[in-house]
Structure formats: structure tokens, C-alpha cells
Design a protein around this nucleic acid. Sequence first.
DNA 1: TCACAAAATAGTAATCATTACTAATTATTT
DNA 2: AAATAATTAGTAATGATTACTATTTTGTGA
Lengths: 129, 129
Amino acid sequence: MNYSRQRELILKTVKENKIHPTAQDIYELVKEKSPNISLGTVYRDLNFLAEAGIIRKIDIGDKQIHFDGDISEHCHFVCLDCGKIHDIERKDYCHDENKNLIAKGFIPLRKDVIIYGQCPVCNKKEREN
Amino acid sequence: MNYSRQRELILKTVKENKIHPTAQDIYELVKEKSPNISLGTVYRDLNFLAEAGIIRKIDIGDKQIHFDGDISEHCHFVCLDCGKIHDIERKDYCHDENKNLIAKGFIPLRKDVIIYGQCPVCNKKEREN
DNA sequence: TCACAAAATAGTAATCATTACTAATTATTT
DNA sequence: AAATAATTAGTAATGATTACTATTTTGTGA
């Protein structure tokens, strides 16, 4: 009995919205279809799904946790101008093979890579001014 | 008048303590030498110093911000068992040259890399049990 | 089909790191 | 030394997240 109507809806919403939504974002989106859903339920279910590895948490240091329905290997680019979070494919960033770390006895299990900078749109705007 | 007695002491404490302390850690350390310093001052000065690029903020997703007096290029390894934050040298992780990103119009300015896993000490403990 | 037990929910209260605020203090400038 | 500007201590406020509880939902097995 793991998937209630609310939980299914929350999962669907995270998968469909590629904007890397926060819990609050999800809450507002889900409320359109399930008006009296509780914010607590949204938080609980998002954590449940992340724990199960079905969605992914992203911490970009803006005090709110973002969620990503795409759990394929990729990293994130945060634009310091507009704040948008862009997906970066594996081939677009060099991936550490961790050889040296492993040689020293570390067991790398998870790596969070977040690149901050200026996205193409904001860079274009700046060049035009 | 940028460097008050308190601010100097906070900076010195961050530089001397390699444990990647939180604001609360710093507050307790600094209180030994300056007993009636305020927690607000510690937060304000740590942010001031980070803003100035003299120290570095680290967000490892444990709800508290950690600070690092070492601003040389390195990333962090967080042990999922003991929670300790280890410094990882540049040569021990493959560094992205960002060529592909730049070709697509992104301007990478800062990259936060945090690797989570098991440190050598915790791995040894596990193998012994 | 129906009752029972386990899990999930809604709604609200509590938590806790961080920030904001203010009056008092300290440092800098002329 | 007076005027001015920055900094501080202490406290209150903020806001995302978690905890709690009574109620509802859901799956299961007789």
C-alpha cells in the first residue's frame, strides 16, 4: 500500500515539471487537481520518493530544496543572474573516475556537482546592453 | 574600519580550525576568548568574510552552513557514516575544463563539487566487523 | 463482501538555523 | 575632541521543514 492517490499525483507532477520545483511549487501545482492536499503530505511524499531513489533532491544553497524527476546521471548549472537551474549532460562535464580517491581508501558513493554562472540567455542580454 | 577585534578573532578561528565548522561551532570557540560575543555577530562576520572571498561557505545538505578558511581549489568528501568533511586535492578529482559548456554559451563561474561516501576510517571499521 | 490492521492524510503546532532590528558602543576623520 | 560611520550585543522575527494527532483511506484475508 505504498502509492496513494496523492503520492501518485505528486510523483507525476515532479516528473512532468522540468523546472526543478521546490516543495512549495509542487504543493501549488498539485492543489489544482487535489485542492485540499496538505503541505505536510507534499513534504512527506517528496522525501519518501527521494529516499526510494525515484526522484532526486537538489540543494543549490538557496534555502529551499529542489526536486528533480530525472534521476539519470547529470549535473546542474545555476544561473547567478536569473536563478534558473539547467540540466547538464554527462558529456558536457568531465566526470571523475575516482581512481585516486579509491586508491586512498575512500569509497565514493554519490557526487553532487553544481556549477554556478551565467546562462546563455542572461549572457546574451548582458552583451546587448 | 573593516576589521574589528571580533571580526579578526572570527577570521583567525576559521583559519585555524580545519574541521569545516558551522557558525555555532565558531561561536563556541570564539566565546572562550571573547565571552560576550553575540551569535548574530558571528553570522554577520562569517557572511561578510565569505562575501569578500576570504573564507568559503560549504553546503553539504545537513541544514547548517559550514565554513572553510582554506580557499584554495579543492572539493569535499563527506563520509556518510561519520559525517566528517575531508578535503580533496585538485589532483584527486578530475577537473572539468568546461569547454563544452562554454561552447554552448554558458559562462561557468563557480563549481561546487561534493562527493559523499565512506571515508577510509569508517571503511576499515566496517571491514573489521 | 465486510471487518480489521496498517499506512497515509489534513491540519496544525513546534523546531531551529538564520536574518532583521535597534539602541549602545567603538573606531575613524577632520 | 566633536562629528560621522561602522560594528556590536541582545533580542525578536522569519521561514522552510518536521513532528504530532486524530481521522480517513487502503489492502488483505476470512
